[in-house]
Design a protein around this nucleic acid. Structure first.
Lengths: 255, 255
DNA sequence: GAGTATATATCCAAAGTGCATATAAATCAA
DNA sequence: TTGATTTATATGCACTTTGGATATATACTC
């Protein structure tokens, strides 16, 4: 959306002689909160640091923004390189790539002391990923359960054996902002289906919302609200299980 | 919220020998969308550029993030230096300073080509300011009316004579994001009183919401909703005018 | 004091929500 | 095959919320 403007010779002269190193520049990174749902728990994908500072601490996958890539591109690259996922900002999931996931900018963190090495400003993103698309990699990359203590702004993480860990940098704070964002978003968008397969039952969608919001929802009014929103469309197919089969719905992305 | 961790001698050695110039670093600026309400119009404070590129174009007030200040501090500084306003992130308006205003981070813009000189990443903020606190400064700083064309994502600006101008850089886009943010926020927060004096009538608050949302609201249900929210408190004082005097309310910031 | 303007209170119908109950369609066990 | 069980879907109803109309209160102007 940059305006194309005519540049006078004077301006071109100015631009070509411009010396950018006049300012102290911070480093800029992107960190990506990758959220998924497993066994009724909201979990985040974390990577173990192999460098100082916070050596061996678990941290959000991230990386420096490269000179010629946009912030969105940097976030998508981190998603691809660290988690093997194709991310697309703005939930356009119908691309031909393997597993495009919902990706959205979250907030930018710039406390001067958030990294002891130097000034690092981090543009945080969050992604919603269907659990089956995530591959954990042993000691390097793993999913952690999230818990938000009452009234606290940051988040606690637990591994599969329910052992609690501390996060590197201000990443617990970033996770807290991500959880508050997605919870707020649920009140006006059924964003939950980003965590489900393409076709899903209303029950599954409700379970997703309940897990994220940490509270029970009324089944009937949830059904009515979802169907009335016009954002779901019945596929005709049925999900079989114990009891009457349930209609499978899909999100209407074209609207 | 940085974790205090014990640093081993090995780690301290690493930190002191760390050479940060290994990466190409972008410049980082903050740009502040300063919104106010005048004569039933939503307006933004803009400054005329005195340098290339976009010489003599109107632009958002902004500045480079300094090495030792946080992003919030940089935004507050821009507000102070360019508009003479005291900004406080998180709407804590009861500070003893002259005119603390609502200030909140908006979004971060990082297209590699958004500035023709070099890579500049801009962390945008928006501020809500009571019109009486804004001083325009002739040819340098002025308020512009905002208009969002149907379906467009960016914003058009008009001066007091209704002459239309083009904005520098991607600032029209930034204004568009700011307007969408504040409109969305109105649905769950009566943020409108940030644009009013400390004490105001329900009518005034409704007028603010109507101006921002560009649509008429139902008077009675607006009253009920506002009073039921528990966020307003009657002051006992009355606003006199033509007709029956109206109760003056104030926002309950302590809640 | 009459007329006007605006704020506040009351009333009612329409829509939305939480909850209870009824019905439908599958599985499972005899 | 039949009936109990399980889950999905449909229906009914009380309660709340909302939009809209109307009535009343309190100021102003003439």
């Amino acid at each position: 959306m940059i305006h194309l403007i005519h540049r006078s010779p004077e301006e071109q002269q100015y631009l070509s002689s411009y010396e950018p190193s006049a300012f102290d520049r911070p480093s800029v990174t992107v960190d990506v909160v990758i959220l998924t749902l497993r066994e009724g728990h909201l979990e985040a994908l974390l990577v173990k640091r192999k460098e100082h500072p916070y050596l061996n601490y678990w941290s959000l996958p991230g990386g420096f923004v490269q000179p010629h890539e946009s912030l969105d591109e940097a976030a998508a690259r981190v998603l691809r390189q660290k988690a093997g996922l194709e991310g697309m900002v703005g939930m356009e999931r119908e691309s031909p790539h393997k597993h495009p996931v919902y990706l959205e900018q979250l907030y930018t963190f710039g406390d001067p002391k958030r990294d002891p090495r130097m000034r690092v400003i981090s543009v945080a993103y969050y992604a919603l990923v269907e659990a089956s698309h995530i591959r954990e990699a042993g000691e390097e990359i793993a999913l952690f359960k999230l818990r938000t203590p009452e009234g606290a702004s940051s988040v606690e993480i637990f591994d599969s054996k329910n052992k609690k860990y501390s996060l590197a940098f201000d990443h617990a704070e970033i996770l807290g902002v991500a959880l508050r964002r997605i919870r707020g978003k649920l009140s006006y968008t059924p964003i939950g289906f980003e965590l489900l397969p393409e076709r899903f039952t209303l029950r599954q969608l409700q379970a997703v919302h309940e897990t994220i919001l940490q509270k029970k929802l009324n089944k009937d009014s949830f059904r009515r609200k979802m169907l009335a929103s016009g954002m779901l469309e019945a596929t005709g197919a049925l999900e079989r299980g114990l009891g009457r089969p349930a209609e499978l719905y899909r999100f209407r992305r074209e609207v």
